[in-house]
Nucleic acid binder design. Structure first.
Lengths: 202, 202
DNA sequence: ACTTCGCTATACAGATCGGTATACTTAATT
DNA sequence: AATTAAGTATACCGATCTGTATAGCGAAGT
């Protein structure tokens, strides 16, 4: 996948050349931003964690804002690629693919999102004027569109409604897991999605 | 309700005397913290917005961390009082009371939470070591316990599972609304909750 | 051979951060 | 009449913030 224009890509193009130093900066930023929050982490900390000078960081990314964009766009890329891989290897029936979404989300979240959805968390810290804001909203619209399309194939005429209902379960499970409200949130959401697809409107 | 020990109260006690100045500080902090995020707002900004000197702010609250605690505890108090009022005036049947929760959440959110749940958003910014962390988790556990209890009265033996499923819908709707993924999230969650209570396990 | 690229090292700028100190005022309490 | 509480005004502290400047180094490309 070149930049962000592939099957899973968005309109946001990768603006930075990922030199070895830039890669380490991005890796450090992803960890620190997610764990501690965007505003709580300074560029000095990121540079130190990456074992890189601040000049390298600014030569590659130009600003902290842009680094935030790359942080979210990078997670977006990897998550979409992961999800698409799971969907492609799932049975072709739309219901099975929807279930595959929830199972992929569970596995991804267990491995990468102990504090919940990184996009939701970033949204809490930045306003609409921030260049990373569209990355957040587009990611959510993308999953919604995916759920809606598959739900429409499964239950023609009810794609819109079912897609949104699936999104409620999906986003709810990430919050419940991230805030440790209850432990089995990710599996519970999968169960509920399955039930929703069987009855259509129970 | 005295402090935070009433019907809707938690273990967190109000540690500050709410003098007129302190009230304006808290009002300004609530608005700024919610709109811009906790780390993005400085104490100077809050004091200026409240029309108060920084000394007054520190005389009343002692630290920014404590002000964050009061911010979240205050929202918690008002939201719980609002919700309990709605539940008390709803029909006594547990199903009707659960629906009342979702309708109350919708009305409260429309009036106070354009950017989604303030506790979820705060959780994105602070770690477990922050004194406000327990305010967040206790608020979520409280609603979960409330849903679980009512769901158990409605469907004996299935309170735990139904309560959690209701929480998925509730938290999901706040995210979907706060990130404007789709506009009717709050009403849709109410519909889904109603359906869930009718079939029990559809 | 010369230039460009990616990088280190260090120092610095101006602003803002959370928090404190000092001195004064005003109103209510005792 | 003396004290206390709640407040203003202002100045300051050291730390940290984002971002820039200067100088140099080694490897790769032309």
């Amino acid at each position: 996948m070149d930049g962000r224009t592939g099957t899973a890509g968005t309109a946001t193009v990768r603006r930075v050349t990922l030199t070895p130093g830039a890669r380490r900066v991005l890796a450090a930023a992803e960890r620190l931003f997610y764990d501690r929050g965007i505003h709580a982490v300074g560029v000095d900390t990121i540079a130190a964690e990456a074992g890189v000078t601040k000049k390298t960081l600014y030569d590659r990314f130009g600003s902290k804002d842009q680094l935030v964009v790359e942080y979210l766009a990078g997670r977006d890329d990897r998550w979409r690629a992961f999800l698409i891989g799971r969907i492609d290897t799932a049975p072709p029936e739309p219901a099975a693919r929807i279930v595959a979404i929830f199972e992929a989300s569970r596995d991804w979240t267990l491995a990468n999102s102990a504090k919940g959805c990184s996009f939701v968390n970033a949204h809490a810290e930045i306003g609409p004027e921030h260049p990373a804001h569209t990355v957040i909203t587009e990611e959510k619209r993308w999953i919604l569109a995916l759920c809606t399309r598959l739900a429409g194939e499964h239950f023609p005429g009810h794609g819109e409604r079912l897609g949104r209902e699936l999104m409620l379960l999906h986003e709810g499970s990430l919050v419940a897991y991230g805030l440790t409200i209850f432990p089995d949130a990710l599996d519970l959401a999968t169960d509920r999605a399955r039930a929703l697809l069987q009855t259509g409107n129970a």
